[in-house]
C-alpha cells in the first residue's frame, strides 16, 4: 500500500514525459489517455501484467466517470465490468491505483481519503 503522496512519476519515459500529472499523481486531462499510457502507468505502479479483466475495469471506471463526473462506488464498476465485487482490489491492489491507471483526474480531498 502506498503512503500519502502519489506514486513517483518516472519522467524519463517518453510517453509519461509528455503527460501532465498533478501533485498527487493523477493525470490532469483524462482525454489524453490511451491504452499505451495506461500500460506505462501500470508498469510504474507495479500493476499487471494487464489482462482483459484489467481493461474491463479501466473502461468501466472511465464510463462511470464520464457519466457523472465523479468517482463511483467500486462495486458498481466491477458489476458493469461483469467481474466479482472486489475485482478492483484484487487486480489493481486498490482503487486509487486503478483510478490513476485509468487516467482519471484527482477526484477531490474526500474521495482520495476514502480510496484505498
Amino acid at each position: 500500500m502506498s503512503v500519502a503522496a502519489g506514486p513517483a512519476i518516472d519522467h524519463r519515459q517518453p510517453v509519461i514525459k509528455a503527460l501532465d500529472f498533478d501533485e498527487h499523481g493523477f493525470l490532469r486531462d483524462p482525454k489524453k489517455w490511451s491504452r499505451n499510457i495506461a500500460k506505462r502507468i501500470a508498469e510504474m505502479d507495479d500493476v499487471g501484467p494487464m489482462t482483459p479483466d484489467h481493461w474491463a475495469i479501466l473502461y468501466s471506471l472511465r464510463e462511470h466517470y464520464f457519466a457523472n463526473n465523479t468517482a463511483p462506488l467500486m462495486a458498481s464498476v466491477c458489476r458493469t465490468a461483469h467481474l466479482p465485487k472486489y475485482a478492483v482490489h484484487s487486480l489493481f491492489g486498490g482503487c486509487r491505483r486503478a483510478w490513476r491507471v485509468a487516467g482519471l483526474p484527482n477526484p477531490g480531498e474526500e474521495a482520495t481519503t476514502y480510496m484505498t
Binding site: A71, A75, A111
Partner: peptide, 20 residues
C-alpha cells in the same frame, strides 16, 4: 455532500445496491 457525488451518481449507486 463531502464526496461531491451529484444526484445522478447517487441514483446510479443506489440502483446498483438494489441489484446486488
Amino acid at each position: 455532500n463531502n464526496l461531491g457525488l451529484p444526484g445522478p451518481a447517487l441514483a446510479d449507486t443506489l440502483e446498483g445496491l438494489e441489484e446486488d
